[in-house]
Design a protein around this nucleic acid. Structure first.
Lengths: 231, 231
DNA sequence: TATACAAAAATCTTACATATTTTTTTATTT
DNA sequence: AAATAAAAAAATATGTAAGATTTTTGTATA
């Protein structure tokens, strides 16, 4: 199974290692706060200690890993506060991005939005049929949809911030998916309303549906188990 | 002369190198788009090639350096579009941060704001007397003032984003300072109104003055020379 | 129990060697 | 002369190893 590739990452060993670790953190195979010892990682993912070290430096810039001078690396902790912070910020960033995109976006952009929405609808059907196998594919389709929403905003830095926040929230979302704490019916309805509002150039309504999508997507469901925090 | 130290940076060689390069980029000693060859940097800043490399990785995460796989590093370019993007985003981020801070901030926070404003006033006087020597001190005092404004917002990630954006805009601001394209009278008045609005818990007025401060601070002045872009 | 010291582990840094990629130079052909 | 192709040079990426420093762990003593 593949995993989202960033800017020509597969070209270098460091990139491959970074991607593998990123994936394992997102899936929870590397639990929050777990100490990341260079030697262990080297044995697990291959590469030299240099490569591993550099991969960890990159991931720590992304916020998935925390680095402390002279004390090595550990998986970034994932408390409920973190989730709230990430969700709130992502909401604000995406709101800005969508607003600007709707101001500046042309027909081509609207086409991209429609296409991304279509792909997401398909992925949604798959993940309902098989929540384990389809989870990652859905998360990528969902991420792509939201990425396209802000694509035309004209601010490369806003787009970068959004990518980072989405990546940071991925572990929470995948955990929720595994435990089926996500209400796809509501999400689907929301996305449809959102799409309709975008095509109607109704900014206010669009932003409203966007916000409820983000909030609902990462909210803890009825089950109270399985938060990612493991002390 | 010292330079803002990030999280225990002086503890490691990599941190020292990163700080030195960050400073030189901010001052324009390393011009935008300049190729950063590992060997040259090693000779200039000391350390091993690996230390330099890691420092560059960190800086590229901060947005001051651009990295391309298999093609090394270069100083991030600094076009007028970049300045606009950074300024716009910083405005939005700081607006959110101040709004949330004013909701959550207590008397202790207000005290910090007053103190930071006082320090900034002093620095302002110094930089008017000697624009060359006082420039960096003023920029730090100004940065600290704005950092304190959002300190009580309760979102560590928003604070991190703001730090990054402020650092990215530093080279533009220092260039403007050197060329005396900054109108301190207006800025001072703005800061005073901003402080008054904060202490009066008048969110709307505060946000208005904040925005005009950020806009005015980085706007190109009457002189049209000396943008940072050097083709 | 608390403190101090010693041992062990891990990280940080440097040095050097090799492989791969990119860029520049040179030579050949049209 | 211009364009293409091959060769050379430069630069980057990766790997191994070894020493220095720091942190953590374990043990003995007060």
């Amino acid at each position: 199974m593949f995993f989202l590739e960033k800017d020509g990452e597969s070209a270098t060993v460091v990139g491959l290692i970074a991607r593998a670790i990123r994936r394992d953190i997102s899936f929870g195979e590397l639990s929050p706060d777990k100490k990341l010892k260079i030697e262990e990682l080297r044995a697990r993912y291959g590469g030299s200690s240099h490569s591993v070290r550099e991969a960890l430096t990159i991931l720590s810039a992304e916020g998935l890993v925390e680095a402390t001078a002279q004390r090595g690396f550990r998986v970034a902790s994932a408390t409920e506060d973190d989730l709230k912070d990430i969700t709130r910020l992502r909401g604000e960033v995406e709101r800005m991005g969508l607003e600007w995109s709707m101001e500046r976006g042309d027909v081509a952009w609207e086409g991209q939005v429609i296409a991304a929405h279509h792909a997401l609808t398909r992925a949604q059907a798959d993940v309902v049929a098989d929540p384990i196998e389809g989870a990652l594919a859905w998360d990528e389709a969902n991420g792509n949809f939201h990425a396209v929403l802000i694509q035309a905003c004209g601010s490369p830095r806003l787009i970068a911030m959004h990518t980072q926040l989405y990546d940071q929230s991925r572990r929470f979302r995948l955990a929720a998916l595994r435990e089926m704490r996500i209400d796809f019916q509501t999400i689907t309805k929301n996305h449809e309303k959102l799409l309709a509002a975008i095509l109607a150039h109704d900014v206010e309504t669009a932003l409203k549906h966007l916000q409820s999508d983000i909030d609902g997507n990462t909210r803890y469901g009825p089950s109270d188990e399985g938060t990612l925090k493991r002390p």
